[in-house]
Structure formats: structure tokens, C-alpha cells
Amino acid sequence: MTTRSGKYLEKALWAPWIERDDRSVLQNCADESWDPSYCLDALREVLHPIVTSVHFSGYSRWGVQPSKSSLESLLLDFTRYLKEDGEWKALHARWQRAEEKPFSLPLFLTRAYARFKAKHHPDRHDEQVGEGRDLSPVALVPGSVSAPLVDAFFELTRQLPEECRLIYQLHLEGLLDPEIALILRTDLGEVRERILEAKDRLDLRDFRKGVGA
């Protein structure tokens, strides 16, 4: 990855999760019997960016910040959820298994928060109205017809050769080229070539069907 964007993604997604060691935070929380208020204070530094990016992504991309009270309320709800739904327990057990590497608190909390949101705030798509959704080709389809049409379009991708199918599917889901390259551990130029190839192949087949060939 040589582009600035790719470097940024690598730094944002990968490095902090691998390099950070938040075991002392977990130990402190354990010592306090996982009291939600204490844990919220201890984890605030880790939780704040997770909650603002995952829950309020649409708002932040439009440059609007959630109110302090709503953010605080969500943080506390999430911290309670961590304890009551057994997420703390699982985190603690994982942290104690020394053989399990890497251990990354932000990574596990991000996944725990996504589960919390799916369970308690399943209105994610209504809130995520920013550019993240807008960039997704499938998000451009009007809501009333989107599900069957999008399913049909994804069915079309099954016709693509293996080397460009997954890349194009990820592109359709709205991931950016540098993200796809990083996720698939491949070259950015290769990603762009495969996306263009997929577009050409699908257009050609549609055209042939249209003229009855």
C-alpha cells in the first residue's frame, strides 16, 4: 500500500488494535467487580471513539456532533450491557488466556458494541445517512425496490470469474478501493482493474440478453 489513504486505513484499523495493551484497564475493572460506572470511566478513552464512530457515523460525517447527554447515556447503557450480557465475562476470560494473541481491547469492544447496537438500537441504517452509505452503489437504489433489486444484482455477480467476484462484491457493498486492497491483502491497482473488469463483463452480458443473443 503506497497511497496516503491506504496508510491511513492501515493505521486506523490495524495498528492500534495490535499495538495497544489495555490489560491493566481490564484488571482495574475486574478489581472493581465490573461496576458499570467505574468501568465507564476506566474505558472512556477506548469507548468514546467506538460509540461516536459506530453509532453516530452519519452525524459525524455531516459535521454534526451528538449531544453530550445522549452520548453519555449511550456509553452508560453500553457499559451496563457489557456486564449484564456476559461480554465482560468473555473479555476477561479471553484476556486471561495468555496463549490467545493478539489481544486487543478496542477490537473486541468494537464487536461488542456492534452486537449491543444490533440488539438495542437496530435502526442503524436510518441513522447512518452520511457519505459512508452514499458511496455504496446498492444504497443508490430507492428503498421500496431496493431489497429484491439488490439481491438480483448480487446474483449476477455469481457469473463473474473468481478473481474479480469478491472484489466487486465488496465494491458494491460500499467499501473503498484502498479498504478492499487492505482487507484482501492485495495491490490497489489490482483492485481497480478487477472492478473495471467486472463492470465490463456484467454490462456485456446484459447487453447480449437485451438483444436476445
Binding site: 486505513l9 486506523a12 458511496l135 460500499g174
Partner: peptide
């Protein structure tokens, strides 16, 4: 993909958008 998108930092998307 929802998860990956949710991890984007605000502002990055405009820079990376290509």
C-alpha cells in the same frame, strides 16, 4: 462491510474517496 464502514474515521472518506 457494515463493520468496516463503521470504523472509518470522519474525514477520511473524503480524502480516500476515489
Amino acid at each position: 462491510c457494515d463493520w468496516i464502514r463503521s470504523l472509518r474515521e470522519p474525514g477520511w472518506i473524503r480524502e480516500a474517496s476515489s
